[in-house]
Design a protein around this nucleic acid. Structure first.
Lengths: 197, 197
DNA sequence: CCTATTTCTAGACGCCGCGTCTCGATAATG
DNA sequence: CATTATCGAGACGCGGCGTCTAGAAATAGG
């Protein structure tokens, strides 16, 4: 599709500076917490000007959102595993692995918090993160439905709400992350047919 | 146990002012959003001095937390309904009703967001709200276990995580609240025995 | 009644980050 | 070499934060 038709005159954006800003924002969030992060502080640590940050990102939350995408590989395993149960298991392990990446949890907390106070960022967060993850999971449910091993009462929307609800509630309201037992229990709960076994 | 032994000299705290501040904070949050609420604004609308607010509450989030407790009756129905399924149903309807109270959703969003950025408030929010609600639900699961109609693979902790996870995820990440279909589906999912029927 | 104590409204104060703006230098294009 | 866009650096006004002071009002004990 149509590349940006602008022939790009003038100086080009510095990729090095971009990465320095993303890294600075990520590290500062871990060190002083999101509330303690200031755009000035990010710029200073990155060796950049404040204007450079404001030129490319609307808020410090947007910087962090991009830093998260850079830090953690956000592609989700939606590969066909043969059964709904196996794919739910794979998805949960994938999510647990992401949460185990150092810094991801505090960054996720900060982003969800900011999404509550800034309506514009809320939409960018939904489009750039939440709905992507959700769509991946719903793919799994849709395939299960086609395959025929999806529990009848379970809609794709509710299954996604339950899975992401569990993950986010753990992150936001508790200190506990996903363990083996959680994955096993959720996998069983979602894939059980009332009448089977 | 030991009442506050202080014989209470001097002028007493004005209950009228307290209520005016709580109401002002609640209303302002709805009108301009939590980010737009300032302590000065709350004091001004309440006809109070800024110092009076700071004397009794640590942050504007604490004011809102108390306002929420005042606004919505937070007692949860944990009455014995005869079966686990019926009690889960009652609990979900109770929660849906709370969310339907005007202003409760934006206030909940604000409080959870603030709990992510302020560690001290996070603990007060957990103690004063989250764990109370959670304990109520776990009572229901414990009774089901005693009664013998709790699904074997379902622990009280996971059941609570799933239920509150769903509710909070809906509030924080979507615009959808709990409907009849959600309540029915969750009730069935949690109370189903793999082998029954 | 008088004094001590506490809360009350009102507002001044310094501090700091926000977001905008200006500046001169530096790359990239034609 | 002229144009254009980015770069680092930092000044600027604005507004809220949290503290502080001042004087009035309420409550208790002596």
């Amino acid at each position: 599709m149509a590349e940006d038709p602008a022939p790009a005159r003038g100086r080009k954006r510095s990729e090095q500076t971009r990465l320095a800003i993303l890294a600075a924002a990520y590290e500062l969030t871990l060190e002083v917490g999101f509330a303690g992060v200031t755009v000035e502080g990010v710029a200073k640590r990155a060796g950049a000007g404040k204007q450079t940050v404001y030129r490319w990102w609307a808020t410090k939350a947007d910087v962090l959102l991009e830093a998260l995408a850079l830090k953690a590989d956000l592609t989700v395993s939606t590969a066909d595993q043969g059964s709904f149960e196996a794919e739910v298991d794979a998805f949960l392990r994938d999510s647990a692995a992401l949460l185990a990446v150092p810094g991801v949890v505090p960054v996720l907390r900060s982003l969800m918090a900011e999404a509550q106070r800034d309506t514009d960022f809320r939409h960018r967060f939904q489009d750039g993160f939440l709905t992507r993850r959700r769509a991946a999971f719903e793919t799994v449910v849709a395939r299960a439905a086609a395959r025929g091993d999806k529990p009848v009462h379970l809609t794709a929307a509710l299954a996604a709400d339950l899975v992401f609800g569990l993950i986010w509630y753990r992150v936001l309201a508790t200190e506990r992350l996903l363990g083996e037992d959680d994955i096993t229990a959720v996998r069983r709960l979602l894939s059980e047919q009332p009448g089977e076994e």
